[in-house]
């Protein structure tokens, strides 16, 4: 009897240890708002996340099997396309906007610089179909996937059914994107009292809170809204921003407020990648011409920062770098999975 109890106790102990040591597939960092994504409609599983990761890294999504999501969204740089103001897609064609960094997408409400996509599940359709990006269509992608042994096996292990549909394909890509959570930068550690800011970073943080945080709201460093930040319209691109989608005059020249997390690596900055350096970004914000009719109300009064202030703000922005996120193997090219069928083709 006593032996039995000891066994039960030991078993429960190990069960508890093994249970608590498994990393959850997704968790909301403490103090963060509730995600916008409805997980009840797309329950996360490791198998589906793996499929999503394979799809993210496979050029099978493009018409000629040359371009993958990762062609323009590189894990080591916060899934931005570092050094490219505009990205090049199929046949070397150049797109119209800067490829945004991808992180904390579960908290996003709308996607793309102008918010034209209303749900994370539907986001992948845009680059897949755009003639400058992958120039493919989802029906044909699904046809190709249904002919791939690798993907048929992967879908079978996730769904107990090897039939690949558009819905399943998109939801798996979403699952991988949902796992891209960046919440362990120095800033986060300071907020959790595990680290402290230098005096320069601290001053930068105070200046940031005073001048920038109304749009780049903590902890996501975006308010998920759209704003005209006073940039002159590029005379070649003639991009009207969100106006092209809503046809509402007040949306003219407004763009999504991007997150600033991992900003150290997501250059060049702005919707058309016009600024290579953070100092150029800050110089822009302190010298906005006041004539733009839809200029954001928060910017109507010019931001004033001294040269030293700017250095301090930048030192604070560098605390938003999250090396764990940038270098985590689970976000990288699935070498092992693709060892038998290169790139999942």
């Amino acid at each position: 009897m006593r032996k039995g109890i000891i066994y039960i106790a030991l078993f429960s102990f190990f069960a508890l240890v093994s249970f608590t040591s498994t990393e959850p597939l997704f968790h909301v960092p403490s103090g963060w708002p509730k995600p916008s994504y409805d997980f009840s409609k797309n329950t996360l599983s490791q198998d589906k996340i793996n499929i999503g990761r394979a799809l993210f890294y496979s050029p099978i999504l493009s018409k000629d099997n040359t371009i993958s999501c990762a062609s323009c969204h590189l894990s080591f740089t916060g899934f931005a396309h570092t050094d490219h103001d505009l990205s090049h897609g199929i046949d070397g064609k150049i797109g119209k906007r800067n490829a945004p960094a991808l992180m904390n997408l579960a908290w996003g409400k709308t996607f793309m610089w102008d918010g034209r996509i209303n749900h994370l599940d539907m986001q992948a359709l845009a680059p897949i179909s755009d003639s400058n990006e992958m120039n493919e269509n989802i029906a044909h992608v699904v046809e190709k996937l249904n002919q791939s042994n690798l993907f048929k096996n992967l879908f079978y292990s996730a769904y107990r059914d090897s039939l690949i549909t558009g819905e399943r394909t998109l939801k798996c890509i979403t699952q991988f994107m949902l796992t891209l959570v960046s919440a362990n930068s120095k800033y986060d550690q300071v907020m959790r009292h595990e680290d402290t800011f230098s005096s320069q970073e601290k001053n930068g943080y105070l200046l940031f809170q005073k001048n920038c945080a109304s749009c780049h709201t903590e902890p996501l460093f975006t308010n998920n809204q759209f704003a005209n930040n006073g940039l002159q319209q590029d005379t070649v691109l003639l991009d009207n921003g969100r106006y092209a989608i809503t046809h509402i005059a007040s949306d003219s020249l407004t763009f999504k407020v991007p997150t600033l997390r991992n900003i150290e690596f997501t250059y060049p900055y702005m919707h058309d990648g016009r600024f290579k350096k953070l100092s150029q970004v800050l110089n822009h914000y302190t010298s906005i011409p006041q004539h733009a009719s839809t200029l954001d109300s928060q910017l109507q009064k010019p931001i004033q920062l001294s040269a030293n202030d700017k250095v301090d703000v930048i030192s604070f922005l560098l605390t938003l770098t999250d090396k764990e996120f940038l270098y985590h193997p689970k976000f990288q090219y699935p070498k092992k999975l693709f060892s038998q069928s290169p790139n999942g083709l």
């Binding site: 797309n42 539907m122 998109l170 979403t174």
Partner: peptide, 14 residues
């Protein structure tokens, strides 16, 4: 229209 990826007759491959 705002519920993400749906299946059956609403599958975006159609």
């Amino acid at each position: 229209n705002v519920s993400g990826a749906l299946g059956g007759d609403l599958d975006p491959t159609l």
